[in-house]
Structure formats: C-alpha cells, structure tokens
C-alpha cells in the first residue's frame, strides 16, 4: 500500500469522523434547546406568578369591568375547576375501567381491535371539536351552559386515556392469578372484581391522576359549555361555572396589566398542581409496578 493511498484512506476516515462529530453536536444542541425552552417557560411562569401569588387569589372574587385597586382573586374559578374536574373524573373513571375490563377480560380479539381503534380515534378528536359536540348536543335547545355539561366534555377527553392505561395495567396482571382463581371454581366476575382489579388498582390510580392533570388545564371544551359566568363563587354544577384555564385565557387577552398579573398567578398555581400530579403519578407507577409483579 502506497503512502498516498494511506493518506487518502485516513482523509476519508477523518471526514467520516467529522460528519459523525457534527451530527452528535447537533443532537446535543437539539436537547439543549428543548431543555432551554422548558426552562424559560417554567421559569417565566414561576417568576411572574410567584410575585403575584397571595391568598386573595384563592379567597377573593374578581371585580369585573372596573379598574379598582381593591384586592381581587379568582376564587370562583378555583371552585368551578374543582367541581367540573371532579365530576368529569366521576364520569370517566368508571366507564373507562369498565371499557378496559371488557376489552381485556371478555372481548374476542376482533372486537378488542375495533373498540381499541375507536378509543384511538376518540383520543385524536381535537378538544375544541369535543366542545362543539357537547354544545351541539346539550347546550343548544337544552337549557344553556352548565358545569355538568362542561364536565361531560372533559370526561370525553379523559375516557380514552383512562381506558388505555387501565388496559395496559390489566394486561400486566399475571394470568396465573386468573387461572388459579378460576381453577378454585371462583366465577369469572368474582375473579375480575376481587383478584384482578385489586392488583391493578395502583396503575389505574396512576392513569387517573395523569388524566386529571391533563384535563385540569383544558380550556377549549369549556368555551362553549361553561363560559357565560358571573364573578360569584358557585358550587352548583347545574349553572355555568368559571374555571381556572378559562380565567387565564380571558385575563391574558385583557389590556389591564393587573389582569395579566392575576393570569400569571393562576397559571403558576395550575402549573404547580399539574407538575405535582405528574410527580405523584410517577411515584405511584413505580410502586404499583412492583406490586403487580407480586414482589
């Protein structure tokens, strides 16, 4: 091999290594950008929200259409979000678990695939279209907006999520347990309710917490179902209730900087809740994974 050939080969190698190094660098930069974006958003919300945070936000009502200096809050929005998200969970959770039980414990494969596809499609419907749907189904000609209709809209968004996570958890429960129970002559419904579900309860809880965290910040489905509200604190879901995300949305479009301040504070509280919920879910997930496996 001549010296010339050797240099040519090492030149090729050098070029390949350079390409490799620049691609690795690009991947590092991409990761850095993602972390930076997250950092900036969370930092900005935290910094601006923290300085505006006080008890008035949770205890005082807003005073609409007035540039007063009296302390204002968003007590009505926090009450409404509690009621609506609570109701949505109460609707979506049992239905989602039942769907999962049917698909994992009873359904023949063909039906399992069909309903699974329907769940995926349901998960792909944009939130605003779900809002239009509930508006068109229940609000028009059905007595107007109300908290319970908003909860129904949020429940539609939660349902595929709860069902999917429950299916995954049920599938992790060892079949030996089912077979042992059935072998002892226990009917299938007792096996499902007393053997399979208790094993899976941690995973279901994880999925529920994540679903709650996700819909607590949803705004679009509430626009048409629970947006015509006054400043009073209300707990009755038969009436339209203000919610935290909708309040942030409205305040963010206001020209008054004091409204912006309250929007930042509310966003901070919302974000804090969602991050805490995600952390809780992760903690629950590691615990329940150990429990399902029977260790």
């Amino acid at each position: 091999m001549s010296a010339q050939e050797l240099t040519a080969r090492s030149d090729g190698l050098r070029r390949r290594r350079a390409v490799n190094r620049s691609m690795e660098l690009l991947a590092w930069v991409a990761a850095l950008i993602a972390v930076a974006i997250l950092g900036v958003v969370v930092f900005d919300v935290g910094r601006r929200g923290w300085s505006e945070l006080n008890w008035n936000l949770l205890t005082k009502q807003p005073i609409p259409f007035s540039f007063t200096n009296a302390p204002q809050g968003l007590a009505n929005a926090f009450a409404g979000t509690l009621v609506i998200v609570g109701l949505a969970t109460a609707m979506a959770l049992p239905v989602g678990i039942l769907v999962a039980i049917y698909l994992n414990e009873f359904a023949p494969p063909r039906i399992r695939n069909g309903v699974g596809l329907a769940l995926d499609v349901l998960a792909g419907v944009p939130a605003i279209v779900v809002g239009i749907f509930v508006y068109s189904l229940l609000v028009v000609g059905g007595g107007g907006q109300s908290g319970i209709k908003a909860a129904f809209a949020l429940a539609i968004l939660m349902l595929p999520f709860v069902a999917r996570t429950t299916i995954e958890v049920l599938a992790l429960v060892p079949n030996a347990l089912r077979e042992a129970s059935l072998g002892l002559g226990v009917p299938q419904w007792r096996t499902t309710v007393s053997i399979v579900l208790p094993r899976a309860v941690g995973g279901i809880l994880t999925g529920t917490v994540l679903a709650v965290a996700r819909v607590a910040g949803e705004t679009a489905p509430l626009l048409f179902t629970s947006s015509l509200v006054g400043p009073q604190v209300g707990w009755n879901p038969a009436h339209a209730l203000q919610t935290v995300p909708l309040a942030i949305f409205e305040l963010s479009e206001s020209p008054d900087p004091k409204d912006h301040a309250r929007a930042w504070a509310a966003a901070f509280v919302l974000l804090l809740f969602i991050l805490l919920a995600s952390l809780t879910a992760r903690w629950l997930a590691t615990r329940s994974a150990r429990k399902i496996a029977g260790r």
Partner: peptide, 29 residues
C-alpha cells in the same frame, strides 16, 4: 353465573358506548 352475565353486559355496554360516542360526535357536528 349471573354475575358473569351482568359484568360482561355492563362492561360491554360501556365499550359499545365509547364506540358509539365517536359516531355520535361526527353526527352531531
């Protein structure tokens, strides 16, 4: 067992409902 029929019926109805919801959304929009 009666319980089997009931559980399968209720759970199957929920699954059917979730599927019907997709069609209902399309129709209502």
């Amino acid at each position: 067992h009666l319980g089997d029929v009931v559980l399968q019926g209720v759970a199957g109805a929920a699954a059917a409902g979730a599927t019907a919801l997709v069609l209902l959304i399309a129709w209502k929009v």
